[in-house]
Design a protein around this nucleic acid. Structure first.
Lengths: 367, 367
DNA sequence: TTTCTCCGGTGAAACGTTACAATACCGTGT
DNA sequence: ACACGGTATTGTAACGTTTCACCGGAGAAA
């Protein structure tokens, strides 16, 4: 049920009711109708249809004049509906999270739900706190934007136990009560390699992601599968891997330098993500190898800033906003099911990423 | 492995109370004490001190065993305190906002307040909606992170009228009931120019920000005041201004090209902000002028990514997190004043930014 | 006429908590 | 024996809303 938004402007002609909040009772008294009638009119649901048009407009007018705002606490307490959805992000300052957030909000708002966002601040141990917070505020469902390293699946079970629908973004979950949304990493790296292949690159270097991330494996599988399909040879000497000891950027620089020692000379480099790609470009530039003329570089993620990099980065866009709105859509459906006391299976979606070609790639030098 | 964890937690030994939420009354019955006693113990305030230690631990144990969670709606309804603070950001996907948000949350949490964030999505007309939302949820105070272009001061008055304390970040407000926090732009650009001056640069080009922004004027004043102090001559031919027609990045590229036409040849360029600086660096690189060897470039803002740019950008950091926590501090104080029925003046703070020297600046070529 | 049904509306009881005033209990001094 | 003062605990009434069962009256059907 969607509560009509109260569009009450203040200023001219607002009746002062002293320093206390105006309640539905005030509206009832001033309008001469009962509290029940006023409630039915102002909550604007199906019940309002039972009240005559004249009464309705009159009550609305009085409410507006008094500057009435429904007390959501009372409303939620009585109706046992909070009309809120909890969101747990692993780092609010990470653009990955906020773009998804945008998608979530844009889908949730027209559906009449308000997102309550809590921030893990990259600290896995905060998960319990976030869960407590959201559960305490009686969210009707919850969405976790969860870097796998910070996701605590165990704690998610608490939502299931209380039959609060939950959706996880960014972590594959094939069974169990929690729904999930993931990006098709394989498809992404396949597109990357195909792009380079079509530009004539045959000697390609790779910086793989850390083994601990499932994404690393999936992205590498995409590379291998495409290479196999077109019989492209991958030289093991030109494959290095992020260990995750230092900062990713620093390690990206070191690994690129390592690659530069090797022969044969590669004409393209596929980085695990955009940050690594930036590190690679920076290192190549410093070593006198121009990007893309001497060496093409591709990233993954399309972080904001990739478009403004020097040179603008060819990369893979993850459709984050869509992932968010997909999650919201699932959540909305699950809530509806719960309200109507239908049982429903958890849902699982995989979204296809998209290659964005910018200036960090060009035809191979010798082709 | 993840699922094992999952299953373990699933039957974590909580006493099942059927499908309904466990209330304070359940805890009272199971523990043998009255609802009042349980409430006093569980709300853990001063009142709890009046209850004997044995009773307290017993009640806590029972509550924990039953998995009791206080219903915040009931609590807030009764106590007339929401313990929430509204936050309006102009764009949640903008790192400027999220860094401030981080500061706000970190200060608010230990104080026992929860931030309710609403997103303007760069659309000024959404301001009323956000205000309604927050007022409807009875926030006890509010903080607006407001790009001046999207701030609607008039609507903020609504908070004042309802005696809800309000703080604005990023817009100077010397009088009136609304508090404010701003960055000292002048100090920032003074530091920039001093840095370049000390590196021996005497012919410096400038890309000024759009006239419509107060920041542009303040930053320019900083430049002029330092130039005056050291008798540095600013060549008007080397000063261009963003008009704000196109995207800032594109316009930055165009303006840089324009500057490149002019003589004398400048050895350093001061950009209005980091995005403009990136555009400038990109354009200079393309024109064959190496940064920083041939020309130093400085930005403003220290957006994330500046550290990873090619080359890493020398820029001015705005202490965003501190601005956020400063705002939260003010808000907390104002709420306390309101609760204790003290009247208190609005507060205004100015924070000093800090120059971050990276690789986009170096000594002038001829010095 | 009586009975039925629908329309427009109402009164009272929740929802889960805290605030306030009141009470039982107990040891102590007179 | 009594009043006293303090400590530990309790009963009841809110908080502002929605929900549920119900009601008076008017017109239709019998």
């Amino acid at each position: 049920m969607l509560y009509k938004e109260f569009d009450l402007r203040y200023g001219a002609g607002l009746e002062s009711t002293g320093n206390t909040m105006v309640t539905i009772r005030d509206v009832a008294e001033k309008s001469g109708f009962s509290v029940t009638t006023v409630s039915m009119v102002l909550s604007d649901g199906l019940a309002a249809k039972r009240i005559s048009g004249r009464t309705r407009t009159h009550i609305w007018k009085v409410a507006k004049r008094l500057g009435y705002r429904p007390n959501l606490f009372a409303r939620s307490l009585r109706s046992q509906r909070s009309h809120t959805v909890g969101v747990i992000v692993f780092d609010i300052t990470d653009a990955y999270c906020t773009q998804i957030l945008r998608g979530i909000e844009n889908h949730l708002r027209p559906a009449g739900y308000f997102p309550l966002t809590t921030d893990l601040q990259n600290d896995r141990s905060q998960f319990q706190r976030c869960v407590d917070l959201l559960l305490g505020r009686r969210v009707e469902a919850m969405i976790a934007i969860a870097n796998p390293a910070f996701l605590n699946i165990g704690l998610l079970a608490e939502f299931a136990r209380r039959s609060v629908p939950a959706v996880v973004i960014g972590h594959e979950l094939q069974r169990g009560p929690v729904s999930s949304i993931v990006v098709d990493n394989q498809s992404g790296t396949r597109q990357v390699l195909q792009h380079l292949y079509e530009l004539g690159h045959r000697t390609v270097a790779f910086i793989k992601g850390p083994k601990s991330l499932i994404d690393s494996q999936q992205r590498w599988q995409g590379v291998e599968s495409f290479a196999h399909d077109v019989s492209l040879n991958i030289n093991p000497d030109l494959v290095v891997e992020i260990k995750g000891r230092n900062s990713t950027y620093v390690e990206g620089c070191e690994l690129t330098e390592e690659l530069l020692q090797h022969r044969p000379t590669f004409t393209a480099l596929v980085a695990f993500d955009d940050l690594t790609a930036c590190a690679a470009i920076r290192t190549l530039s410093k070593a006198g190898r121009r990007v893309p003329k001497d060496c093409s570089v591709v990233g993954f993620d399309d972080v904001p800033g990739s478009a403004f990099y020097n040179p603008p980065l060819t990369t893979v866009q993850q459709q984050l906003e869509m992932q968010g709105s997909l999650a919201a859509e699932i959540v909305e459906e699950l809530i509806r099911a719960a309200v109507e006391k239908r049982t429903v299976m958890s849902k699982h979606r995989k979204v296809s990423p998209q290659l964005i070609v910018r200036d960090s790639t060009c035809p191979a030098p010798d082709s």
